[in-house]
Computed example of a mutant assay.
Amino acid sequence: MKHIESHKIILFDGVCNLCNGAINFVIKKDKKNIFKFAPLQSEIGETLLSKFQIDTSNVDSIILVDGENYYAKSSAALRISKELSGGYPLLYGFLILPRFIRDAVYDYIAKNRYKWFGKKESCMIPTPELKEKFL
């Protein structure tokens, strides 16, 4: 799979405006070039979902694949924040909260993301400059 072993992969809902905004934000703050990106709906996204046996009816927004491990929901978001430039790594400290509390907040936002932020008809197409970041 395209020499991705050295990168952490963020799988995201390619038709979700909130998710696309989050991906654009991560790209800007990923100064160490740690992440690669793929829509859940892409071939690579589907391959990784199958490999880790992830049920998209339970997890349908952001998933972080780090080597042979994956993280979903709030755990993914907080682990991503740890790698960003600026003060965002401080958010990683929220991992001390019980996951059921973190995920309840995450699930509430995820459940309402299309209503609040809208939905695209198709996945985002990266600009030529950003194409190398997408799988």
Rank of each mutant, 00 (worst) to 15 (best):
Met1Ala: 11
Met1Tyr: 13
Met1Val: 12
Glu5Arg: 14
Glu5Cys: 08
Glu5Asn: 14
His7Leu: 01
Leu11Phe: 05
Leu11Cys: 05
Phe12Asn: 09
Phe12Glu: 05
Asp13Met: 12
Cys16Thr: 06
Cys16Tyr: 03
Leu18Gln: 02
Leu18Ala: 02
Cys19Ile: 11
Cys19Trp: 05
Val26Gly: 02
Ile27Asp: 11
Ile27Leu: 09
Ile27His: 08
Lys28His: 06
Lys29Leu: 10
Asp30Lys: 00
Asn33Ile: 08
Phe35Asp: 06
Ile44Phe: 15
Ile44Tyr: 07
Gly45Ala: 01
Gly45Tyr: 02
Gly45Lys: 06
Glu46Pro: 10
Thr47Arg: 04
Leu48Arg: 00
Leu48Gln: 03
Leu48His: 00
Ser50Ile: 04
Lys51Thr: 13
Gln53Trp: 07
Gln53His: 06
Gln53Pro: 06
Ile54Val: 14
Ile54Asn: 14
Asp55Val: 00
Thr56Arg: 13
Ser57Thr: 10
Ser57Met: 09
Asn58Glu: 15
Val59Pro: 05
Ser61Ala: 11
Ile62Thr: 06
Ile63Ser: 00
Val65Tyr: 00
Val65Arg: 01
Asp66Pro: 09
Asp66Arg: 13
Gly67Ala: 00
Asn69Trp: 04
Asn69Lys: 15
Tyr70Asp: 03
Tyr70Met: 03
Tyr71Met: 08
Ser74Glu: 05
Ser75Tyr: 09
Ser75Met: 11
Ala76Tyr: 05
Leu78Arg: 01
Leu78Tyr: 02
Lys82Pro: 07
Ser85Tyr: 15
Gly87Glu: 10
Gly87Lys: 15
Tyr88Thr: 00
Tyr88Gly: 01
Leu90Trp: 15
Tyr92Trp: 12
Tyr92Glu: 09
Gly93Trp: 08
Phe94Trp: 12
Ile96Cys: 10
Ile96Ser: 03
Leu97Thr: 07
Ile101Asp: 09
Asp103Ala: 08
Ala104Thr: 11
Ala104Trp: 13
Val105Asp: 05
Tyr106Leu: 04
Ala110Trp: 00
Ala110Lys: 00
Lys111Val: 06
Lys111Phe: 15
Lys111Gln: 14
Tyr114Val: 08
Lys115Phe: 12
Lys115Gln: 09
Lys115Met: 11
Trp116Met: 14
Phe117His: 07
Gly118Ala: 04
Lys119Tyr: 12
Lys120Cys: 15
Glu121Thr: 06
Glu121Tyr: 07
Cys123His: 06
Cys123Trp: 02
Cys123Glu: 11
Ile125Cys: 07
Pro126Ile: 03
Thr127Glu: 15
Glu129Asp: 13
Glu129Arg: 10
Leu130His: 10
Leu130Thr: 07
Glu132Ala: 04
Lys133Val: 00
Lys133Glu: 01
Lys133Phe: 05
Leu135Ala: 11
